[in-house]
């Protein structure tokens, strides 16, 4: 057995390969003693990885780059030897905003460019009558959600810094904020897009995969210095997580059951969106 490893994660479906690797015993079979630590914020995951309380982490791909460049926090070179997820985000809006966009639509409702242009007209109309700007939530400043949402609305002529308000909310709080009308829409990974749909308080406008094909999402991140010192543990962990990813592909029912545990994602697998 190697020395115990502590790996941080945020409760999201795209941590599945990592969670399955540990909970199905694949990591243990590789001789690794892994403790998964569920965190409440990306800031915490980043800080604990950077200062060495975590050996590895489920991390937003852009945070790995920000840490390596020393933007927003300590400059700590981060290595990303395994990609945990491609895509998986969706843009979800309130039924009211959905209706407003549909009313302004001049093309196919599944065409992100058409909806972005329609959003531009909704924004202009609201400004004209002096209404509050539309508020979208993202999960973190250095996140694919931030960039993807900006990319989508920017393509339709909406300036994300001037025309709308962008706020940060932890993923598990998104549905409630949408229901309470604190926000009009958000961009987040599963399962948090499906919950407002199930409750009838949100509509999925686009899967981001309709906008960007094969965008890196969450990564398995480690400090470069730790990778250099522990090549065997890194290789063993990659084997275990890779096997976990294979398992996720093969057995989604069992995967959903594992993720449903309160110490993991903590959402029961009964949702209108497929895992």
């Amino acid at each position: 057995m190697s020395p115990p490893l502590h790996i941080g994660f945020i409760p999201l479906v795209d941590a599945a390969a990592l969670i399955v690797a540990v909970d199905k015993g694949f990591a243990a079979e590789e001789g690794l003693d892994v403790t998964l630590v569920r965190e409440v914020s990306w800031s915490n995951v980043r800080d604990k990885l950077n200062i060495g309380l975590f050996d590895a982490a489920h991390l937003l791909a852009p945070v790995a780059i920000a840490s390596s460049l020393g933007i927003g926090h300590l400059k700590v070179p981060i290595a990303v030897p395994f990609n945990l997820a491609i895509n998986g985000n969706a843009i979800t809006v309130s039924p009211a905003l959905h209706a407003a966009i549909m009313a302004e639509l001049d093309g196919d409702r599944f065409d992100p460019m058409a909806t972005a242009r329609a959003l531009g007209r909704v924004v202009a109309a609201r400004r004209k009558r002096g209404a509050e700007p539309i508020t979208f939530a993202i999960t973190f400043p250095f996140s694919t959600h931030n960039y993807q949402l900006r990319f989508w609305m920017g393509a339709g002529g909406v300036d994300p810094d001037e025309d709308v308000r962008l706020v940060v909310l932890p993923p598990p709080f998104m549905a409630q904020a949408l229901e309470g009308a604190q926000i009009d829409g958000f961009c987040v990974a599963g399962p948090w897009s499906c919950i407002p749909v199930d409750r009838g308080v949100g509509r999925i406008l686009h899967f981001v995969s309709d906008i960007l094909v094969r965008a890196a999402e969450k990564v398995l991140a480690m400090r470069q210095s730790w990778v250099d010192r522990n090549p065997q543990a890194v290789a063993a962990l990659i084997r275990a997580v890779s096997r976990g990813a294979g398992f996720v592909e093969q057995d989604r029912t069992e995967t959903a059951r594992i993720l449903a545990h309160p110490e993991r994602v903590g959402v029961v697998p009964r949702s209108s969106c497929d895992l």
Binding site: V40, N44, I138, T139, F140, P141, V167, P170
Partner: peptide, 8 residues
Amino acid sequence: PSRDSLEQ
């Protein structure tokens, strides 16, 4: 959990 909101 509000820490990420502060960072933003």
